[in-house]
């Protein structure tokens, strides 16, 4: 199965009981693009990422995942998704290497170069064989990123990826995301740190109370433009 190059979100709505989290969101995510999914807390960004990740079932509407014009479904979709969530999605009792070995096995990734990946995300060599419960917030975030990148996903979903990183770390991560995008990956970033994605995000979508109130594609947006768009449409 090939890499995903198009994700079409069609009138996706999600309710949790009487709470409306998403109200008929439609948009397309394309390969080699970085979508900055913005909005205030409670706007529905995390729910949309959940639906995109296949772990939240939409109340109505659907998402079509395509690779080379063909629909991709089920386990083949999940194989292509990398996710960095609010929590690390890693086992605290296992070391960084053990965590990545576990997930490499679950994803059937046979040629995973775990040390190179941990070098890439900047996880200290001495910490790699220590239980991850001993890590600082920033180290946990680096491990979580390594887990998300381990499978070379073609759809990378990132929920506040810069949390816990210092300014240098956040900018370096932003740079890495730019490289990942350039390799053909669909990158979706939920963040309030507009500076870290400035110059890389080329697709902006703003959610307000579950509705898509703004969507635009362009060249890589500057920090000022992103800030301006956010303040004009998120409020």
């Amino acid at each position: 199965m090939g890499r995903l190059d198009l994700v079409a979100i069609e009138k996706v709505a999600k309710r949790f009981g009487s709470e409306r989290a998403l109200a008929g969101v439609s948009m397309e995510l394309r390969g080699s693009s970085m979508c900055a999914l913005l909005g205030h807390n409670g706007a529905g960004k995390t729910t949309l990422l959940g639906v995109l990740s296949t772990l939240v079932r939409p109340s109505s509407g659907k998402i079509a995942y395509r690779a080379g014009g063909k629909d991709v479904t089920g386990e083949d979709v999940r194989r292509e998704i990398g996710m960095l969530a609010h929590q690390s999605l890693c086992y605290a009792e296992l070391t960084a290497v053990e965590n990545l070995e576990l997930f490499a096995g679950l994803y059937d990734v046979r040629d995973a170069n775990i040390d190179a990946l941990l070098d890439k995300v900047g996880l200290d060599k001495r910490a790699r064989h220590r239980a991850s419960r001993t890590y600082s917030r920033g180290m946990v975030q680096r491990l979580a990123l390594a887990r998300a990148l381990l499978t070379r996903p073609s759809l990378l979903l990132l929920d506040e990826p810069f949390t816990g990183l210092d300014r240098g770390g956040a900018l370096a991560l932003g740079e890495q995301l730019g490289e990942i995008k350039a390799q053909g990956t669909i990158v979706v970033v939920v963040t309030h740190d507009l500076e870290a994605i400035a110059g890389r995000a080329d697709h902006v979508a703003i959610l307000r109370r579950g509705s898509l109130v703004f969507e635009e594609r362009g060249d890589a947006y500057s920090y000022e433009t992103l800030k301006d768009i956010y303040h004009r449409h998120a409020n």
Partner: peptide, 18 residues
């Protein structure tokens, strides 16, 4: 509870494992 602590159940369900 352990699977809830770091949301690792989500990681398992997100993987392509049946």
């Amino acid at each position: 509870d352990r699977e809830r602590e770091n949301d690792t159940m989500r990681a398992l369900l997100l993987s392509p494992v049946p």
